Each structure stands twice: as C-alpha cells, then as structure tokens.
Simulated assay, not measured.
Amino acid sequence: MSIQLASVDDSLYFTAEIAFWAWWNGGGRMPDRESVWDIARSGITRRAEEVSTRHRLTATERVRAELNEALLAWKPVGGSYVRARGRCLAVTADPELVEAVAAHERSKSQQLMISWSEQRRQQQREQMSSLLLDPLRATAWWLLNNQEKATEVKEVATTFLELQGMLKPAARTESAGKLVDEFLDTKDAAIKVHFLHTLKKCFLGYDREDLATRLSALEE
C-alpha cells in the first residue's frame, strides 16, 4: 500500500510503499476480511508515523531503513485481536520540497557557523583587552609565542606598560556630594522637592542651620 506519513515539519509528508500482513488472533467469529485489513492498515500507519515524525524530508533512506526495523515484528493493533507486521519497500518525497528543506538546513548551519565565529571573535577581543591592561600577562603570552626572540622581551614589556597607561580607564572618584548631585539630576520635580525637604530636616536635626539655609536656595 502507498501511505502518506507526516514528517517532523508541519504539513510536509513522506510517501511510503509498505507491504503488510495481518491475522486474526482471537476466538469467536472473525470480522470480514476487509475489516481485518483496515484494522491492520491503521496499526501499521501508526507504527510508521512514530518513525517518520522524527525526521525531515531529506532523510528518506533513513526513514525506509528504520521503518523496516519498526514494522518487522508481529504486534497487536490496539485492543483488537488483529496482529500485523510490515515491510517498507520505498520512501519518497516531493523533490522540490526536499530541496527547500535542504536549503533551509544549509541556511541554519551557516547561521550557526556565523554565530560561533562571532562568539569566538568576541572572546578574542575580550582576551586581548584583558592582556593589554595586564602587561605581565601580555609579555608572558608574547614570550610563549616568540621564544626565539627572548632578547626582545624587555622592549616588548616596556611597550605593554606604555599601552596600559594609555588604555587603562581613568579611575572614577566617588563622593557623597557627587552621588547627591546625580540623584538630584532628575526630571521628576516631586522627587527632587521631597529629597531636598528630607535633607533639610536632616541638617536641622544636627543643628546645621547654615547648611539648611544654603539648601533652601536649591528649593527655589
């Protein structure tokens, strides 16, 4: 029989040519022959789709091989007395759809390679930045890769020291005043007024009327 088997991709199907056999394994009166074949066909199809739905359309030969493994044994169909087994003769798919799926897989592989390459470049940039700010490590790394130029290590170390001075970010000095200034740099007037009022009460609480008076200028 020729049956359509779903693939892992929605709405894309394999066409499988499957020969199957069935027999009645129960007592009493056996249903008509056509019913037994229908039950067996249903069971074979379910077993086949357990295989096909794991694969893309590009894997027709693999699906055929796995179907022969999955359908080899006699197995009961559901709760019936029908037992069935099968053999897959061929698995095909629409050539245009196969090419479309293959192109999609190639595109995903290329995107993955680009992503890996970019991650590697980012790691290299971070490693280089770290080395340039650490003359000792940078010199050791250079010497490891240029052992035949050991006589130049002093000059190289000096260069790395100079680069560190040029590239090292300037240290940021913090103070309570700077933090207050940053907090007051807000567009929300209500927050600013509330903060200044609270700060003024704090100054007055510690008998610093001079600071409270200077603060009043900011409230205007």
Score class of each variant (00 low, 15 high):
156 V>H: 13
164 Q>A: 05
190 A>F: 07
171 A>Q: 12
157 A>Y: 13
41 R>Y: 06
82 V>S: 03
176 A>Q: 03
65 A>S: 02
50 E>G: 09
196 L>S: 06
2 S>A: 02
195 F>P: 04
119 Q>V: 00
139 T>R: 03
10 D>W: 00
40 A>S: 10
99 E>K: 13
149 K>P: 00
3 I>S: 02
162 E>T: 12
194 H>Q: 14
13 Y>E: 14
94 D>P: 01
181 D>C: 01
130 S>V: 02
38 D>R: 15
159 T>K: 06
155 E>V: 06
93 A>E: 05
156 V>W: 11
4 Q>T: 13
148 E>W: 14
198 T>C: 05
100 A>D: 04
55 H>D: 05
205 G>M: 09
41 R>C: 01
178 K>C: 01
137 R>I: 00
81 Y>N: 15
132 L>A: 12
189 A>C: 01
32 D>I: 09
202 C>I: 10
167 L>V: 09
121 R>S: 13
183 F>T: 04
141 W>K: 10
1 M>I: 08
56 R>Y: 08
87 R>A: 12
88 C>E: 04
96 E>Y: 07
42 S>Y: 11
60 T>L: 08
58 T>W: 04
27 G>L: 08
2 S>K: 15
30 M>R: 15
73 A>G: 05
152 E>M: 09
85 R>L: 03
210 D>E: 10
148 E>P: 01
43 G>M: 07
88 C>M: 07
96 E>A: 15
219 E>H: 04
153 V>P: 05
80 S>E: 08
35 S>F: 09
179 L>E: 15
111 Q>M: 12
179 L>H: 13
8 V>C: 13
214 R>M: 01
196 L>E: 11
140 A>V: 08
48 A>S: 14
210 D>Q: 09
205 G>L: 11
198 T>Y: 06
48 A>E: 04
164 Q>K: 14
163 L>I: 10
13 Y>C: 06
96 E>P: 00
199 L>K: 07
170 A>Y: 00
134 D>E: 10
5 L>R: 05
61 E>K: 14
112 L>N: 03
211 L>D: 00
177 G>P: 00
42 S>L: 05
41 R>T: 07
104 H>N: 11
34 E>S: 14
14 F>T: 08
80 S>R: 05
184 L>A: 10
25 N>R: 08
182 E>K: 06
133 L>P: 01
87 R>M: 06
74 W>I: 03
155 E>Q: 13
200 K>G: 11
15 T>K: 10
39 I>N: 05
125 R>D: 15
9 D>K: 10
160 F>G: 07
7 S>W: 07
149 K>S: 14
207 D>P: 00
178 K>M: 14
8 V>N: 05
150 A>I: 12
96 E>H: 14
57 L>K: 13
213 T>Q: 09
156 V>N: 13
131 L>A: 10
210 D>W: 07
60 T>C: 15
16 A>R: 03
94 D>V: 02
19 A>E: 15
148 E>Y: 11
180 V>F: 15
65 A>K: 05
16 A>I: 00
26 G>D: 13
138 A>S: 10
11 S>T: 07
133 L>K: 08
10 D>K: 04
64 R>K: 15
180 V>D: 08
75 K>T: 12
171 A>N: 04
116 W>P: 00
185 D>H: 12
148 E>V: 07
160 F>D: 08
201 K>T: 02
212 A>N: 05
201 K>W: 03
21 W>I: 04
203 F>G: 09
126 E>P: 02
174 E>Y: 05
25 N>D: 12
